[in-house]
Design a protein around this nucleic acid. Structure first.
Lengths: 170, 170
DNA sequence: AATGAAATTGGCGATAC
DNA sequence: GTATCGCCAATTTCATT
């Protein structure tokens, strides 16, 4: 099957060790662990936590960014606190003749503000969309928008009672 | 400029959320948008982008954190780059008599290092687990672990070809 | 609550070990 | 790779409005 969005963030082929280019040593993994837990840790504090010099720490973190190991730093905002208390997972099955227009549908869902995660999956469904909406009305409109798309064969919506992102370790 | 990522199909309400404390004004939403896009934006740059003084900006961001609107700042690490190239979504259905032990199962899956997201859902399934593993062997072991749990009635695993987290706006 | 000025701290290049 | 120095920029406190 064709990939919907060839980008620098694509999954990469890896060996048994799973490294991209050079392997990560224990210090790199410690740095990643601390930055996953708190992206705003200062360089000085980070260096002390992992036991290296500040200048070395800065160089390592920059290298991890340039190698694509660290893709970015993001604030985690509570959807309910910004007026989007109703979350759902929408599984989307495409028409069988739409498999050569995957990029089009991907571009569409990425532009929908309610969509937080797009999982392109193998199996009975083609996409799983994690969405956050203002309420049942907004969710219904969103589902209708998806179902009205010419490439969509069907959707199944499951409400999300709770969502935990486990940021433990790397 | 005010909104970092304006979108036409906005499903959100313009006003309050009512869920957590006071409502957010446009400046707060602009701050959140910029911090979601880049959590390491400096306070000085952030203040300039939204058109307020640096000290005011600092106070607002701190307030957003204390009110729980901002839950944290996290580095986004490429799973494939740290040796976990195989991602999957595992839907889990619990035994019907396990509904009073939900906390126990939740605690279990939160401790599994492969698990990145736990979605507790309504519908045919009870949980959706987004996992990242080293390979087919590790994934098989993980699924076996889940299936062997006394509260698990069954699982369905779908491989994830690609995952995009759309960090646009709040 | 928002601001500007002042004091503290950290980022980061250059140099040397 | 690490340690020291030094400059500049950023964070943060505080008095004022």
């Amino acid at each position: 099957m064709v990939r919907p969005d060839p980008s620098p963030n694509d999954l990469r082929p890896t060996g048994a060790s799973g490294a991209t280019g050079r392997a990560l040593d224990e210090i790199d993994r410690a740095l990643l662990g601390h930055l996953v837990a708190d992206a705003r840790t200062t360089n000085a504090a980070l260096a002390e936590k992992v036991g290296i010099a500040a200048s070395t720490c800065l160089a390592r973190v920059r290298a991890l960014r340039e190698r694509g190991v660290i893709r970015g730093f993001h604030a985690d905002v509570d959807p309910a606190a910004v007026g989007l208390p109703l979350q759902a997972m929408i599984s989307v099955r495409l028409q069988s003749d739409a498999r050569d227009r995957l990029g089009e549908f991907t571009a569409l869902v990425r532009r929908l503000p309610a969509v937080r995660d797009v999982y392109f999956v193998a199996g009975a469904d083609d996409y799983l969309l994690h969405v956050a909406t203002a309420g049942t009305g907004a969710l219904r409109d969103l589902v209708a928008t998806l179902n009205n798309h010419r490439d969509v064969a069907g959707t199944v919506t499951s409400l999300i009672f709770d969502h935990v992102r486990t940021a433990h370790g790397v």
